[in-house]
Nucleic acid binder design. Structure first.
Lengths: 294, 294
DNA sequence: ACACGTTACGGCAACCGTAAGGATT
DNA sequence: AATCCTTACGGTTGCCGTAACGTGT
């Protein structure tokens, strides 16, 4: 059976680019790291690292092994952390992590006496990390039901159409769906389910809806709309600032109350004293949660 | 650093329900397993197993640790297997694994001189296993792009409406979308993207489409339709048998050629001699693949 | 000369198996 | 008595650190 200490040393070498630095990071002498790498290489029957005097670099085989090493190291770290009841890791999709989460975190952290680490990423990425045990609690914009997890609806966030101040729609109170019929919307982060939501909410009236440019982030979308490159639909809280400064107009839809459900999801541990679940419930209490699936 | 041998012993105890059987499985003496479990328990500062004379059972904390243990054990096994260039694991969503894959596997296995293990599961489950490194190649019905992976379109499978022989539509040559307008379809496996595909393909005409009963498998859907409980839409190759025996009618849509793209996905190893990639390409060659994403 | 990784070697810890010891049914 | 896990103990392994040794810049 492989030795995790060897894997940790390998991972450290891969990250630091040298045996000496790796030894320091894992708290061993440098020859010990040499031994670890040799042992791994014998075990896998493959050379993993090209030793050069100006830094060590992974061989192709080493690069192939790297994701395995990372999973092994991170999983063992997380397993240990789970029982120490401290330092839980919260993952959030970009929109939530940037615009909504910060104001809740401090209260929950203090109420529970927990240290929090935050990871912000794309929505599917966060879902995967939850599955991989790399994060304990996920705050996400879209959740496909998976066995072994609990997900609850956290908030219903209003979505609004955003246009620049000079736009023909800028002074409307609301926007009827018919206006959107042939509009082209600037796209933000992929995989957040906004497209799905729109089609579901507008029904047949969404047929002509198109999304131009995938800009990758809501920040980018806001800047693009400010610059007059187009219009978009975003979560209301993402544009509160710009709206109050008059840089953007945020206008609700007229006939359909367009709301996106945000979810808190965590692994359904049978552990009674489950810190992830406690944190999740604390978050939910500050957002009037509604149970979706156990 | 935790010892993987201890984790393997724990996992074996969890699966076999006893220290003796676990010892036999991992090839150690029984006291060695006792030591392993004690070491783990000391390391995690938690009791993991309730020792009873009539079998050992996991404590709640043990059950909480179990998924971590499984990931650690399976990942190390997979890492080792990767370098042995043998025995690659293919995951397939149920429909593909049952109706399409078998006829291709033997040829690919022989052409490459590889042993194959097959895992069949729900579509999201297979995608997760690919991410977790539990499988090497995934044959799936829906793929959300993830960094670090390669996915290619493998086949375009025709979808057909299935109705029982006595149904009013049984003798139609094709079914116009308008007929489906307010139909209720029996649902099969969740998360395969058929619903999405339908809405995308039928556009606004899908507005009234409803799915009743989630039956969980295509086999169940077929039996339910045979029994006259309703109609459904399935992959043509899933009902070839029933169609030729006259137990079901399979009827294409009239105005939209309804096709589902099936994908082969694998981890984008930089390893030159990557057996998973070789196998994937072999499969693609037998299905006229079209590149989607690198 | 310096920085990096390797080799050599010795002490010490830890692991495993055998054998004997409770505890429960 | 039978089964299951634990304890006790000794031999062996192998891991780690110190120190000395190549090697390339």
């Amino acid at each position: 059976m492989i030795d995790l200490a060897c894997v940790a040393s390998f991972f450290a070498v891969a990250e630091t680019g040298g045996f000496r630095a790796a030894a320091q990071r894992v708290g061993l002498s440098q020859p010990a790291v040499t031994q670890h790498i040799r042992k791994l290489e014998r075990w896998l029957r493959a050379e993993l690292i090209d030793r050069g005097n100006a830094g060590s670099v992974l061989t192709p085989q080493g690069r192939a092994f790297l994701p395995y090493a990372e999973i092994l190291v991170r999983t063992s770290e997380r397993a240990q952390a789970m029982f120490e009841k401290k330092n839980i890791v919260v993952g959030a999709s970009s929109n939530i992590g940037i615009y909504l989460l910060p104001k809740h975190l401090k209260a929950c952290s203090e109420a529970l006496g927990l240290e929090l680490d935050i990871v912000i990423g794309a929505n599917p990425d966060i879902a995967d990390r939850l599955q991989n045990l790399a994060i304990d609690v996920a705050c996400i914009e879209w959740w496909d039901e998976r066995p072994g997890f609990v997900a609850q609806c956290w908030k219903q966030e209003r979505l609004v159409v955003i246009v620049p101040p000079g736009h023909p729609w800028a002074d409307r109170e609301s926007i009827p769906a018919a206006l959107l019929q042939n509009a082209t919307l600037l796209g933000g982060e992929a995989g957040t389910g906004t497209g799905r939501l729109l089609r579901q909410c507008l029904g047949e009236r969404a047929a002509g809806l198109r999304t131009g440019m995938q800009l990758g982030s809501t920040e980018a979308v806001k800047r693009a709309v400010e610059a007059g490159l187009g219009i978009s639909i975003v979560m209301a809280s993402a544009v509160a600032d710009e709206q109050s400064h008059g840089r953007l107009r945020a206008i609700p839809l007229a006939d359909a109350p367009l709301e996106k459900s945000l979810y808190i999801a965590w692994r359904d541990h049978p552990l009674h004293e489950n810190p992830a679940a406690r944190f999740a419930r604390c978050l939910l209490d500050s957002g009037a949660g509604r149970r979706v699936r156990q």
